[in-house]
Design a protein around this nucleic acid. Structure first.
Lengths: 222, 222
DNA sequence: ATCGTGCACGCTGCATGCAGCATTCTTGAT
DNA sequence: ATCAAGAATGCTGCATGCAGCGTGCACGAT
């Protein structure tokens, strides 16, 4: 039995350096600071990040497992390039995963989950009205992640997150024309409606269509 | 044009030590040599594998990204435990992924792919008749992987492979009763029939049902 | 001038060294 | 005997050292 009024024993969240470096590198890749095809120089990049080669190398292995980086023997790490086919295939899988997540969400999401997603949605619409593109984009990602989480399947969230990370950059590039953006917004209205109605079939269909449309929106940008 | 009688130019496949250690560790975890919950001692394990701590640590990070290992700050690496819910959720995702793969396979698989899968299937049935359990199990995995590959979606194969690795051990434990085994075999007859008929809907349905049945077969073993 | 060869540099891959923290054993006090 | 405090041990996390390989450049031969 735990002592009720014991002092706070939570670990000092010295977020491990490993996690910090992984996150940082992932962001650098997604944001394009490290462009696809870039060969990573361990010495320079380590110096830039303020860590030695060892933890940097460990972070690179981690990201290689996620598929964001390729390890070429005797040549080190290279930022992975995604071909149009890679993107299309990835979006197809994401569509299927989100469709499943939508079904689970209709079944398992609590009222609080729905309320939170509604808030995110409304805020995102406000950002759309203001044409505030980057925050819109981030909130968009958050909404999808929230739907995933509310389904309550951790393995699903995990694989979704990996594919999501791979395609994040490309999807951001995609929404550049006003019509495409309006189309994506319309999709989202349908999504939130189906979710709040807990109409699993409609939500699954809508999410999958949203991904298919995403491909149409980005295909020329690649 | 290649010179016909040129000397063998294949690269000397000095498989990188990293890959070797990763594969080796993955096998040890799947086979249960490293049991779930085991805390990994870098010094000992490294000595046992004949590598120093550095490449071992890098391999551990790689596997942590796959979810086979957890990294606990200041305590190192621990072999991940999967709860019954983890297994159930993972199988649900696998079912959806295989259903998609089945559709893609019906659409994209070449005649040679189908022929190869048929060969694997027949060989597996031979092993079933002989009740040769471990080879049966391995061939079973191969068949599913072959269906995945024949769909031609690399992202799909990738995420499937990760979840597959997580659950491999548990699925092996599952098929221990004769009735369960017979049920799995029956599933596979339906799978190959639908595939050869290129009946996408039927194949998708069958594969998903196969996964649901897998859960029923293993749920008591966990 | 062009092609081939050898040398030098730079980078990766791995081993080892070292500091810091957690855990456990020991010792002393109650 | 029990418990607390301190010391010692052992492990992780990170830095650095070193060998081997790949690459590019210079020099020489044709």
């Amino acid at each position: 039995m735990e002592d009720a009024d014991a002092i706070d024993r939570r670990p000092i969240v010295r977020q491990s350096l490993h996690d910090a470096v992984v996150s940082r590198l992932r962001d650098m890749i997604i944001e394009g600071v490290l462009a696809p095809g870039t060969r990573i120089h361990e010495g320079n990049l380590g110096r830039e990040l303020g860590v030695s080669r060892t933890p940097l190398r460990e972070a690179l292995k981690f990201l290689a497992s996620e598929g964001l980086i390729e390890l070429v023997p005797t040549r080190g790490a290279v930022v992975r390039r995604f071909s149009p086919k890679d993107v299309r295939d990835g979006l197809a899988v994401l569509g299927t995963l989100e469709a499943l997540a939508g079904r689970l969400a209709c079944e398992n999401a609590g009222a609080d989950d729905l309320a939170r997603i509604r808030l995110l949605h409304d805020e995102m619409m406000r950002l759309y009205a203001a044409r505030d593109r980057l925050p819109y984009f981030k909130l968009n990602q958050e909404i999808h992640a929230a739907i995933l989480r509310s389904g309550g399947n951790e393995a699903l969230s995990y694989v979704h997150g990996i594919l999501q990370a791979r395609l994040k950059r490309i999807r951001y590039i995609g929404n550049d024309s006003p019509e495409k953006w309006a189309g994506a917004v319309a999709d989202h209205e349908a999504i939130i409606a189906a979710l709040e109605a807990r109409d699993a079939d409609a939500l699954a269909r809508t999410l999958e269509a949203h991904m298919a449309a995403t491909w149409e929106r980005v295909r020329d940008a690649i």
